[in-house]
Design a protein around this nucleic acid. Sequence first.
DNA 1: ACCGAACCGAAAATATCTTTCAAGTGTGAC
DNA 2: GTCACACTTGAAAGATATTTTCGGTTCGGT
Lengths: 301, 301
Amino acid sequence: MTQDVKEIFGSPGGSLAAKVRTLAPSMTRSMQRVAEAVAGDPAGCAALTVTGLAELTGTSEATVVRTARLLGYPGYRDLRLALAGLAAQQQSGRAPAITTDIAVDDPIADVVTKLAYEEQQTLADTAAGLDTVQLGAAVTALAAARRTDVYGIGASGLVAQDLTQKLLRIGLIAHAHSDPHLAVTNAVQLRSGDVALAITHSGSTGDVIEPLRVAFERGATTVAITGRPNSPVTQYADLVLTTSTSRETELRPAAMSSRTSQLLVVDCLFVGVAQRTYETAAPALAASYEALAHRHRSGSR
Amino acid sequence: MTQDVKEIFGSPGGSLAAKVRTLAPSMTRSMQRVAEAVAGDPAGCAALTVTGLAELTGTSEATVVRTARLLGYPGYRDLRLALAGLAAQQQSGRAPAITTDIAVDDPIADVVTKLAYEEQQTLADTAAGLDTVQLGAAVTALAAARRTDVYGIGASGLVAQDLTQKLLRIGLIAHAHSDPHLAVTNAVQLRSGDVALAITHSGSTGDVIEPLRVAFERGATTVAITGRPNSPVTQYADLVLTTSTSRETELRPAAMSSRTSQLLVVDCLFVGVAQRTYETAAPALAASYEALAHRHRSGSR
DNA sequence: ACCGAACCGAAAATATCTTTCAAGTGTGAC
DNA sequence: GTCACACTTGAAAGATATTTTCGGTTCGGT
């Protein structure tokens, strides 16, 4: 059984490398070897059979197939077709993709360029790796929720607040918790129809998992935004939204790209919800805009 | 039968279509049917197995293989890979061109694509418009500051907190203020050598301008991150860092792009400062990473 | 009508891909 | 430190796809 062509070629080119980067953390060692080979030389790998690729990467056929599955294809055959397509695209349109890490002695102008580039990369990766089905489900849940609790600590806490601010702006009831105890206390109040949303890059921040678990057990719809699709937090998550995990460098901690990634997801959630609740969201947005104008000097008074 | 020139030289798939036409006379009836199908819809055929294509053309597997051979491939498998490549090329020929705003009825997948694209655009704009001289001066001031106060309200408040968190991580003394009264109270404590940094998109948020004015008058180095280089806030700013102001749409409020833009500036500041204070920043970063590891549940991978 | 050559497809043979399963490996709990 | 468990992994069995074989059919020429 072969996949529909649209699914194979539908996504924008280069998304495979992005997908590999996003999913790499959730891969086992052998699978990473296969994924690397595939991302590194699509054309070369397209010429190989399962057995060939297994030998090249020093693994087994089973592992190759498993990797293909993880990358979203029904099997190796389809991955191979996608690779052939990718190779052809690369042949015709050359990709730029040149970047070096930020060095201690880089002039500030280079820092700006590199950071901007890397964050753009992160955005592209995240967009490519985001499961729109899960996203849509999360949007539906949020739009219909009686109330929404958002959990996040540290850098993720700011993202949690950002989402909360946005939801409040369109008339929804949302609250961000960064205090683990209060979060749990509040989670107990949740019930079916409510939404609990945990934001954690590592997926193993206990302080964030705990309230989500409570909410999960109380019957609320639970959503996790994490960079590790297999991490503990997903255990209590009805819906999982994966953020991209680009490699971190000494001067550019992981927190930076995970934040960018998380914010994109949060923005998508917000816009999605705003769409669903347009009738009430649009006037609410306009009203809050109006209200803020009075806080500005150049405004009135 | 007159041949249309466009058909021969027009599309990238021309070479295959041409080959089919050239070889057609030497083909048998069944093989022609297969060749036609292949030339007519490469993408569609790439999704089919030998059996599928045989059925589609009302022929047999053997005929399909024979056709593939005649077209110059060792077998159907390789023809299929070539078709996949061809399809991908044709696909990429059509420009992405994400120019339209996000509409109320856009499917969620489009929302993701468009948002990611717009944020990428914002990053590029910001990086291009950032004054590296001012930025460098701000970095120098921050790196040498006895203490740093950051003012921001609403969405900008989160950016202020983000910067503060980062600076604290590398051992600097920084504080974010979102309470206007406390901000002013603290601003009074500032003196020469300290840094006060105001973040406001509009540049006319009174609650943020006021503490900056106080700091300015106390002799602190004042920095403004704003989207309006001529706005009131710049009056009290020694250094002005301009963020990009991309057009906002109904479903994508200005806050979204200004936040992205502000965060990039803040990241640049952080990395710049980390470079200047590398000796102390590097171990501090490592230490905070280490400390956090204990807050994480040990999870799978 | 008969013959021969080319064409064609059914089915066997082969290659390739997928699934299963049991052994290996590391990890947390006690 | 040891045990138990869960996860990883590759070998081999099983399923599918591709290629080859081979005999029947068609068609033109005699």
